[in-house]
């Protein structure tokens, strides 16, 4: 039985999904703060949200790299 493989699949899934979701959720939250009308939000908030989304974009690109066999065969 391939218990080790199973465990590594579970671990990788957890790490990947949690980091993407945390980053994206932070991005969503920062966008929401930056869009608040009352209480002028700090200027760095919106760029920071773009950074969060940018990392998510990188994760998607890494996913593409994994999917397309051409890149790693």
């Amino acid at each position: 039985m391939k218990w080790l493989e199973l465990l590594s699949v579970a671990g990788a899934t957890l790490v990947a999904a949690v980091s993407v979701v945390v980053l994206y959720a932070l991005g969503v939250r920062l966008t929401a703060i930056a869009g608040d009308v009352q209480g002028s939000p700090a200027a760095w908030i919106r760029p920071l949200s773009y950074v969060c989304f940018g990392f998510c974009g990188l994760a998607v690109l890494f996913g593409l790299w994994l999917i397309v066999p051409y890149f790693h065969h």
Binding site: L6, S8, L66
Partner: peptide, 25 residues
């Protein structure tokens, strides 16, 4: 939406992990 995003991210991660770490799901 937040749920859907969390669910799809988990699905994508699990599928990619399983097809590259040798335990097919």
């Amino acid at each position: 939406p937040a749920q859907g995003f969390a669910a799809e991210t988990s699905t994508a991660s699990a599928i990619l992990a399983s097809s590259h770490l040798g335990f097919a799901l």
